[in-house]
Design a protein around this nucleic acid. Structure first.
Lengths: 218, 218
DNA sequence: GACCGTCTCCCCCGTGCGGGGGAGGTCCGT
DNA sequence: ACGGACCTCCCCCGCACGGGGGAGACGGTC
């Protein structure tokens, strides 16, 4: 029987590409897609895929967190194949610690992509040589701002709602009116958001929202 | 008759994704693919596509060079739609200077991608689909031809520089230090930027910068 | 029952921000 | 020679913002 795969990536284009590449393989079947890590667990429970092809950077819950969540909560977890661009290989180490089984670069050729899926499905772990080499040299430096944003972005629902409105240019008073709460309450939420995002002011918070994909341009 | 498209991207995954997205459209047909800018000219000559979807970053000849080459050497050149994930807005200007007709982010939704292809095929120039239109309507300028985002917002060089730093989360004092001018000067520029963008505060200005593609989310 | 996280609201307080003016300088095109 | 952008710096002023506290109410968990 074919290897079943669940695709998790916030970019529809990448999902379409992976689907096209993998479905061209007779022994691989794409059984589902998700646009964010937050949606993964129920899908894994329902679809029971052999492999989850997981993007690293996603709006609500990144691939690292999602990997941890799946491995922690699902009884017979699927293999996790982390899909990433070579630019953000700072994530490699984190992903491996989270329990990912394999690593794949988006710029890989179709045959390599399919090969990677087969390998992790069989229980082999695989890494891309270049990535591994670099993580050895990179590991040790501290400053990783983009990572910090995603990791600390443990926003509550209300905070996320406030951030969304902040990212639409609303003032605290306007947000308060919109949410039908007091201005003090909004200030409180804003402060939490700033703290969790490591932002100094609302402008930096909005930047983080865009950069992390929490809100999308266009 | 359908709009014919030539895909130029070094990553097969992206080509597969674009092909999947575009071929789902009844009025768009992918007539060819190339993995590098160096291969574009003969393909354009032979296939005569309406639109070339061109990646910026490629091994042998990048999208900017390839765009120049095509427009310089082909008699009736196709429309060039530059496709990129690249953060650096320098590429936007370079691409537009090179004669590109449109600009598209890879993280766009399928409908937007298809829409972008149709628009440039019809001779409309577009930078970032929904956002630029917003700018155009808001500032009501009539000048349509492929101009930089800068000129659409009518920002001066200095103002654009200040906006770029604002969009990186810098305070007025930090911008002043960076540009080696007085804080009052920065305030002055910021005020101009806010006025020209129709923004109430720096947060709204930064939002406009992202939405217009003046800066890109990474 | 005790505990914790979340949402809600409240105080004080300093300051960065933005609006409204103005003014001197250069460089440009006419 | 003159106007007109543009960049630079300056004044006053009001206020939204953000920090640092705290507190009551609700819903879960242990």
């Amino acid at each position: 029987m074919p290897v079943t795969v669940l695709l998790v990536d916030d970019e529809p284009l990448v999902r379409a590409g992976l689907r096209a590449v993998l479905e061209a393989q007779p022994d691989i079947e794409v059984v589902g897609e998700a646009a964010d890590g937050a949606a993964v667990i129920p899908l894994v429970r329902r679809l029971r895929p052999d492999v989850v092809a997981m993007d690293v950077r996603m709006p609500l819950m990144d691939g690292i967190e999602a990997t941890r969540a799946v491995l922690r909560t699902v009884a017979e977890p699927p293999k996790i194949l982390v899909v990433t661009t070579f630019e953000d290989d700072e994530y490699v180490y984190e992903a491996l610690r989270a329990g990912a089984d394999g690593f794949l670069l988006k710029r890989a050729r179709p045959a390599e992509i399919a090969h990677a899926v087969r390998l992790v499905a069989e229980g082999e772990s695989l890494l891309f040589p270049a990535s591994v080499r670099r993580l050895a040299t990179r590991y040790g430096d501290g400053a990783r701002p983009a990572r910090a944003v995603l990791e600390r972005a443990r926003l509550t629902e209300r905070e996320a709602e406030v951030l969304r409105l902040m990212a639409r240019g609303l003032s605290n008073a306007e947000i308060a009116a919109r949410l039908v709460v007091g201005a003090e309450t909004v200030k409180s939420h804003v402060s939490s958001v700033l703290a969790k995002l490591g932002a100094r002011d609302r402008t930096q918070a909005v930047i983080a929202a865009y950069e992390s994909g929490f809100v999308e341009a266009g």
